[in-house]
Design a protein around this nucleic acid. Structure first.
Lengths: 233, 233
DNA sequence: CGGCGCAAACATACGCCGTAAGAAAAAGCG
DNA sequence: CGCTTTTTCTTACGGCGTATGTTTGCGCCG
């Protein structure tokens, strides 16, 4: 039953309301369930009505990632430990993404460079600068942490998605692979996968933060070393 | 002109040919240009014909990420320096992703757990294990590096996309932001953005590898420390 | 209080999409 | 050559995003 209103009374529909309904719909039924007609039904309104509040579907999707990005508290950095602040920020961002896993593909492909986000970024850069990072390195740190969090969240959500295709909930190996064929892989996945993902996240995050700290304290860059990368022309 | 053949001669169409044409089309005109009808035209064939070689559009998209993943050489690890091998692997993966930026959203949302990929993963895990990582930490390392690379590639491609919306090629600030409002941000972006992105990638990658090396050499885990994260219930 | 302007909501229509179902054509094979 | 098998084409259905034009009811001004 599509939330009908007695015909004639106005909805007072709002961009915010549209975005919230869209986010709820995506959380409930996935990205592919989000169509203008469907979202209209959800709000008791015709599809075209939504165009009074969002320019088009692209803008609606942009609005979804905006909702998520704005929901995470900006990094709180005191000069004593920039690492603690970045760690909290990374965890908060991961939590926000995990709360809306179906939006992650959107977050990945849409840069969130709205004005409020840029201000958050600017203040974070200032804090990191006061902690001893040169400006461009501060940007490196912020970008790297967010990139890492987003990539990790994407991988985790993709795995959860395929894991739900086989809809049995016994805790056995979700990817049933031959222990003889993949001994190390099976050994590595023996740990409870949920803890494993979180543990991996913490492990790599600590490694990154430690690496950044090492780069910060040493004036000379700790750059590549013997580098044999290849690059496209 | 849609590559017509004189009616009657057969194409000898192949799954591989379909995937290559699809990848070329996506590279040329973006993900949204990839439809079964359009891809059929590209190959001089009706849309439904494609279903003889791919089960449905989902499978075709899976095939696209498969193409990319298989195109990057597996990590070559000699016991002397696991870091060099992982660094090369990261660079190769980044290069492959940057060659097909429009496929990145697909790579992000589709776990590439096909049999050949699992074998590559297994052999990488063995090498890392021989370098002194416990099995689960080896998995952490591989996952973290790939997550990081994918996240970084996604961010870079998203930025390049918005940067092309304003189609002027003067090298000025691609995100024209007020230097008074965002002093640190503008300072940080003063470096040539192309080099900046690559430099940031190398910087963070080295930090991660250094952090992993530190974790490997110390038996005691270098875990979080004073942790004030919050988590959803 | 009455009418009117205007923004919000509705209704219709167009050209796309993915793909199910069946006809037709080509290719292999005795 | 006829028969089977596989590939390709044709048609059709429901759903999509949205351009376009009409209706509706609230708030304001006289």
């Amino acid at each position: 039953m599509p939330a009908r209103r007695t015909r004639g009374q106005r909805a007072g529909l709002t961009r915010q309301a549209v975005l919230e309904a869209a986010l709820a719909l995506v959380d409930r039924e996935g990205l592919q369930a989000l169509s203008m007609r469907r979202l209209g039904n959800e709000l008791g309104v015709e599809a075209m009505t939504l165009y009074n509040h969002v320019a088009n579907k692209e803008a609606l999707l942009d609005g979804l990632v905006e909702q998520i990005v704005l929901s995470v508290a900006p990094p709180q950095l005191d000069a004593s430990s920039w690492q603690a602040g970045m760690r909290d920020f990374a965890h908060a961002l991961l939590t926000a993404l995990r709360a809306h896993p179906d939006v992650i593909p959107l977050v990945v492909s849409r840069p969130a460079t709205t004005a409020p986000n840029l201000h958050v970024l600017e203040s974070t850069l200032r804090s990191l600068h006061e902690s001893g990072f040169p400006a461009h390195r501060a940007l490196d740190v912020v970008y790297s942490v967010t990139n890492f969090v987003v990539g990790h969240a994407a991988t985790m959500s993709a795995q959860n998605a395929t894991e739900q295709d086989t809809d049995d909930d016994q805790p056995g190996p979700l990817l049933d692979l031959d222990a003889d064929e993949f001994p190390f892989l099976t050994a590595a996945m023996r740990v409870e996968p949920r803890i494993g993902a979180q543990g991996r996240f913490d492990f790599a995050l600590e490694a990154m933060l430690a690496g950044f700290e090492a780069a910060r304290t040493s004036a000379s860059a700790p750059e590549p070393g013997p580098d044999r990368r290849r690059e496209q022309p």
